[in-house]
């Protein structure tokens, strides 16, 4: 039985789909069997970020409606034999699926894979309820911005409340995305530590605002594991998901290694 992880945020545009694609890829790279599910019905995106948009035959709604078997709808990644995508439907709307159907599907998928990763739509309506219904772990993505943090807090409130509908989440962890190290250092951007203080959940990763993410999305090739700042940050998250203890760089306090090096140098001189 695999673990079902939902990637959620409340606010749109904070990088849920990017995180989903890269965490899925990173886990597959580490040898785990991974199924990613795009649960954003009507606005599918994970297929293009993964570069698999030309291979879609069946989708999530087809599976749930019984028009095809799960295996027929799963698209294998170009680079990894152990990484699959179940794409969302573009023509239907979010009411085409119920939370009970999603829960059942997630159960079936986690029998086939080590990790099932659900890409949740923005908002807290039907699509969100569907996505969380099948998951036991939630990774909440936010950026160090007031608006995104407020929405993340709302989401965390819902996920922490055992009385929330369709809520089976027992682990909530935070990803702080699009961190600009220079701005954090100049006290013009909230540091990951500040965000953790505000939201009161454990941090699982910090992703720097890296141009390479745009380039990787342009190409449709996730960058997890490659030699870029964001690629390394995603590898760290994947290792933490699999239970390894990976220390955090001191992003919040002094900036990344280069900044720390210089401040140490200054300290040494003075």
């Amino acid at each position: 039985m695999g673990e079902v992880i939902v990637i959620t945020s409340g606010k749109g545009g904070v990088g849920k789909t990017t995180c989903c694609a890269n965490i899925g890829t990173g886990l597959a790279k580490a040898g785990y069997k991974v199924i990613m599910v795009d649960t954003d019905i009507g606005l599918r995106n994970l297929d293009v970020v993964m570069g698999l948009e030309n291979r879609i035959v069946y989708n999530l709604v087809d599976v749930i409606d019984g028009k095809c078997r799960i295996k027929q709808a799963l698209i294998k990644s170009r680079d990894y034999d152990n990484l699959y995508l179940l794409p969302s439907a573009q023509t239907k709307d979010k009411s085409a699926v119920t939370p009970w159907q999603m829960e059942k599907l997630a159960k079936q998928l986690c029998e086939e894979a080590d990790y099932v990763i659900l890409d949740c739509p923005a908002g807290i309506e039907q699509g969100f309820k569907n996505a969380i219904a099948g998951a036991s772990t939630a990774l909440v993505v936010t950026t160090p911005e007031v608006s995104a943090i407020r929405d993340a807090d709302r989401i965390i409130g819902i996920l922490k409340n055992p009385q929330s509908e369709f809520n089976n989440i027992n682990k909530i962890e935070l990803i702080v995305n699009k961190v600009r190290l220079k701005m954090v250092k100049n006290h013009d951007m909230l540091s990951p530590d500040d965000v953790v203080d505000m939201l009161g959940v454990d941090l699982i990763g910090v992703i720097p605002d890296d141009e390479n993410i745009v380039i990787s999305t342009n190409k449709g090739i996730p960058l997890a594991g490659n030699n870029t700042m964001a690629g390394k940050a995603f590898t760290d998250i994947c290792e933490r998901i699999t239970g390894k203890e990976i220390p955090f760089s001191d992003y919040g306090k002094q900036g990344f290694s280069v900044g720390t090096f210089f401040s140490k140098l200054i300290k040494g001189v003075s």
């Binding site: 007031v146 943090i149 407020r150 807090d153 709302r154 409130g157 250092k185 100049n186 006290h187 013009d188 951007m189 909230l190 540091s191 500040d194 505000m198």
Partner: peptide
Amino acid sequence: FSKKTGSSVNIAKERLKLVLITDK
């Protein structure tokens, strides 16, 4: 330079604290 008062981070923190409380 690093701890200038009234930096935008401090403003963000104050605003966020208030808004999160009132939301809850």
